[in-house]
């Protein structure tokens, strides 16, 4: 026990006051599943996804004191992950260079993905998007980030994020042969 005179109620324990280990355990509990899904999609390799994730969590542990609010935890963790992914991917690019060409049914199966043709078509459509469009869409749909969070992480304006997301979905729909997107003037292609 500490000698704090006004200890907060259990319900309102300040995140900054929380035991570091407890914070870390919560981080794993709340976000590791989503992060793994995102990690595997970005890495296209189970081992690498696990490695990068383990490294990201270690980095998160080391700088956990800088995380002040529970609601910021996910964005904070995913940002660390993205940075670690960029770092490791660059280093291992040579070994993983054939990653981009991995889109056979067999690979999907190996990764544990749904191998029905519809699912396959969706993943391929996403892969075919230009990176500038794909990245924010992955963050929004797979990472669950808000537009503002994406803007922060990618260091671009919110309106730029909105434009990219718009184009990403429009392109997805075209690739998938859904009803052609409505003509919306200048923002189109």
């Amino acid at each position: 026990m500490t000698d704090l005179s006004n200890e907060p109620d259990e319900e309102q324990v300040n995140y900054t006051m929380m035991d570091k280990k407890r914070k870390y355990a919560l981080l794993i509990e709340a976000h590791s599943k989503d992060l793994y899904k995102y990690a595997l999609w970005l890495c296209k390799d189970k081992h690498m996804a696990e490695d990068v994730m383990q490294e990201a969590f270690l980095r998160a542990w080391k700088s956990l004191d800088s995380l002040r609010e529970a609601k910021a935890a996910k964005g904070w963790l995913f940002t660390i992950f993205r940075r670690e992914h960029a770092r490791q991917f660059e280093r291992k690019q040579f070994q993983y260079k054939d990653v981009e060409s991995m889109d056979t049914i067999e690979d999907s199966h190996h990764m544990g993905y749904d191998d029905r043709p519809e699912a396959f078509a969706l993943r391929n459509a996403l892969k075919r998007l230009p990176q500038d469009y794909r990245e924010p869409l992955e963050m929004q749909v797979l990472g669950g980030f808000s537009c503002d969070e994406i803007a922060n992480i990618l260091d671009i304006s919110s309106s730029a994020v909105m434009t990219r997301l718009f184009r990403a979905r429009k392109k997805m729909r075209q690739i998938l042969g859904h009803e052609s997107a409505p003509q919306l003037g200048v923002v189109g292609e």
């Binding site: 280990k21 509990e29 599943k33 899904k37 969590f57 544990g112 993905y113 749904d114 797979l142 997805m172």
Partner: peptide, 25 residues
């Protein structure tokens, strides 16, 4: 379409990964 896309990359996390994340720490 978003839901289908998200489901198309749904995977099961390796059963021991959480334990390893904890262990590493």
């Amino acid at each position: 379409m978003d839901a289908d896309l998200s489901n198309s990359v749904e995977v099961e996390m390796p059963s021991d990964l959480m334990a390893r994340l904890q262990l590493n720490q």
